[in-house]
Design a binder for these strands. Structure first.
Lengths: 328, 328
DNA sequence: CTGAAAGCGCTTACAG
DNA sequence: CTGAAAGCGCTTACAG
């Protein structure tokens, strides 16, 4: 059986109180007692039950992480960095893949609350407001997504990124530039990429052409959209895709149709994950500062957990970077 | 404040016992009482504290997942599937990125034990035995990795995969085939890929040429190895890489050196993740059945959790599939 | 410097 | 069909 604090206590000839004290390094304990207790813990292979501790402390050091799917390289890398930083700060991470489905997300939020998480980091491309986030008063930080006007949002500087991408394509002489994005009705910060595209295009007196992919995680949806672009808009000579997988999908279809990239069509992606850049190093893309996004989200969350709600910025946009490959 | 079971009880005019009963659907309760309790729970926005429940039940429905890093597409996808299946079965997942560092892994195991996880799924490329796994008697399943002779291992059929890859290269006429793998000294099932390569080569009277990458997750290590291959073995005309990122790294270097693929050099990867196939669709590779690996690992783990140790297979190898791209 | 007691929020025998 | 009591494994005032 698992040893508990009482077992350690009797073996060391002290009270459970004392064992707890040496465990938590609280109060004064004679060195001799300490040694006896440590010895007993070792002999019994004792390790404390964090459930019991947390129950008493009303603090779990657990945070819930909701991402659409760690299969997507952006969220896979984001999850890695978030968990990694959390671990270094003594926080544990419960992973939730919402697949951007609102019902899943709601039940995850519920589950996390029941597990008494200290806070939640919610990342997703879209989804309307989730009531549960407001009902309970728990620390929440959103990544690239507006959840409510009290929940801080962290993300890349989407506007700057969209602007960079569009301007690059224009500067390379593209005349018909298509932008591929998620559904319009969603009011996410990622929409700023689209806004930037539209405004830059307008500034050059050009007509924006936007294609929407219903489900950014659905390969089939992506392909269908790409095919539609070629069919409906054969004069396309520039594409700003909302993520790298989408850009890759476009590039493949272009090759299949014998269109040369970047000669005939230039393509810029978004995200710039390590995986994408290893697998498709020629891709020109806008790199999101994933480690920085992770760090900022955690910093904000911890401030919330510690009760500093007042002075938190509602929106934090971190700088993006143009990765110059050879597709544009 | 958060409502607790006593609050619900007094508002519904019953005892906490009764509330607990309706919560758990245990014993006989009159419909009228049930309704009153549900009403009170709603009004108070009550949700049970799983910490307290778990403490009593000695069951958390929590499983620990240790992967090297979700940044790697293979483990990102594996994590997704594992969490997804777990969620559908009422299990929660605590994510741990070990980076294949033994000290990190040990402290994760410790943390997981303190959190009373019901079981652990440990995936990693390498690492010697971890004592902690044996010290405690807890349910553990390993993915592509030998932890001890009592811990079940799940993985792809590495031998078949290695054979397929090597035979494909031979059948395409390659004469100098290099295999890139992790450090030799590690006794992982992934080593079977290497064994298969060696045996097939021997069968054709060919000399195996193996290059080892120290840290499979280090891009720099990968590149260095790739460059060494070109420098030391310029006659190479076939490569079987131990994973797709490595294959991609080789392909990039080949392009940089003006070597045409597949004309001058043919390349086969391993893993066949969705991301890799979207970003580098021309890659020829051996696809691991990731969803099946996830499912099998969970099935085994749950059997262990439920005490069925006896009849569990020590090794489970799931079928791989050749993805015919155009790099070989 | 150390211990007995109460309590964190639940659940389950045991009674009735 | 329902409740009072004890206990899951800890920690923290409160005493001494």
């Amino acid at each position: 059986m698992k040893a508990k604090i009482g077992d350690v206590a009797s073996r060391a000839g002290v009270s459970p109180t004392t064992v707890s004290r040496v465990l938590n390094n609280r109060g004064y304990i004679s060195q001799e007692t300490k040694d006896r207790v440590y010895k007993a813990m070792n002999e019994l292979n004792y390790f404390p039950n964090d459930l019991a501790r947390s129950l008493f402390n009303k603090r779990t050091n657990l945070i819930g992480l909701i991402v659409p799917s760690t299969s997507n390289p952006f969220f896979g890398e984001l999850s890695f960095h978030i968990e990694n930083i959390c671990a270094s700060m003594g926080y544990k991470v419960m992973l939730c893949n919402s697949l951007n489905q609102i019902d899943k997300e709601e039940s995850y939020v519920n589950m996390l609350m029941r597990n008494q998480v200290d806070g939640i980091i919610a990342a997703a491309h879209y989804n309307r407001e989730i009531l549960s986030y407001n009902k309970q008063n728990i620390a929440v930080v959103a990544i690239d997504r507006y959840l409510s006007n009290t929940i801080p949002v962290v993300g890349s500087d989407n506007y700057a990124g969209g602007k960079m991408a569009t301007e690059l394509l224009l500067s390379r002489g593209c005349r018909t530039i298509v932008h591929i994005n998620g559904p319009l009705e969603l009011d996410t910060p990622a929409r700023l990429r689209r806004n930037a595209y539209e405004e830059v295009m307008a500034g050059y007196g050009k007509q924006p052409i936007i294609y929407e992919v219903n489900d950014l995680f659905n390969q089939e949806d992506q392909r269908t959209t790409v095919r539609r672009i070629f069919d409906e808009c054969p004069e396309v000579d520039g594409v700003f895709a909302s993520n790298d997988l989408q850009a890759a999908s476009f590039i493949s279809e272009a090759r299949r149709r014998g269109k040369s990239i970047p000669n005939e069509i230039k393509v810029v992606g978004y995200d710039g994950t390590e995986s994408a850049l290893m697998l498709l190093p020629e891709l020109t893309t806008i790199r999101q500062p994933i480690p920085l996004i992770a760090q900022s989200a955690i910093d904000l969350l911890i401030k919330e957990i510690e009760g500093q709600f007042g002075d938190l910025p509602h929106e934090t946009y971190l700088p993006v970077e143009l990765v110059e490959g050879s597709t544009a």
